[in-house]
């Protein structure tokens, strides 16, 4: 249990630093920066106590906002996917009741895990870019950024998860 807390704290800090110091400076094709820090949300163990998870997700988002001067954009989006993580997971696995404590993203099949990451990333990015542009006139820019950034984020997150977690 203690080890689990430690792992999540280390992961939290290293993902924030990775995001603000490395990934925010990448600029793929001139302007695309993957938002890989949300991997923390995918990997957080599913517990009965959702309150801690929600508050920590909010803190994760707001730390990114502090660094990138973006108001509460990342906090809003990260909190949103944190709240809807469980319902979406249930929908994908088509089970009303599965073993919460033993759930691990490496434990389910690749296609299901991919679908899970895809949906959450897409929702997150869509909220981030909508709030960033804050205007209906620039819907095309929002959509274009969402899709391209999502693709890069998904590729990097999946590679990261495969490299840094143990298969169960």
């Amino acid at each position: 249990m203690n080890k689990l807390i430690l792992i999540n704290i280390v992961r939290f800090i290293s993902l924030v630093l990775l995001q603000v110091l490395v990934l925010n400076q990448i600029n793929f094709f001139g302007h695309l920066n993957p938002l890989v820090y949300i991997v923390w949300v995918f990997l957080f163990p599913i517990r009965k106590n959702k309150a801690t998870f929600l508050i920590l997700s909010f803190l994760l988002g707001i730390s990114i906002d502090f660094f990138s001067n973006s108001g509460g954009i990342n906090a809003a989006a990260t909190l949103f996917i944190a709240y809807f993580r469980l319902p979406i997971l249930k929908l994908i696995l088509r089970k009303s009741d599965f073993d919460f404590l033993l759930f691990n993203i490496r434990g389910i099949t690749f296609s299901k895990a991919f679908f899970f990451i895809f949906i959450l990333t897409f929702i997150h990015h869509f909220i981030v870019f909508t709030l960033e542009y804050f205007s209906f006139n620039e819907f095309s820019a929002v959509f274009y950024n969402t899709i391209l950034t999502s693709i890069i984020t998904i590729i990097l997150s999946i590679l990261g998860i495969i490299l840094f977690t143990k298969k169960k």
């Binding site: 909010f58 502090f66 660094f67 001067n69 973006s70 108001g71 509460g72 954009i73 906090a75 909190l79």
Partner: peptide, 30 residues
């Protein structure tokens, strides 16, 4: 949990709107 979610979301939106409306965001800046 839903209430907690809503409260935190309101905070986040408050920061976002403050950021877009006022010339200075008082709290969230680097």
């Amino acid at each position: 949990y839903f209430l907690l979610f809503i409260i935190l979301e309101i905070f986040a939106f408050y920061f976002t709107i403050q950021h877009h409306t006022y010339h200075k965001s008082k709290f969230v800046n680097s």
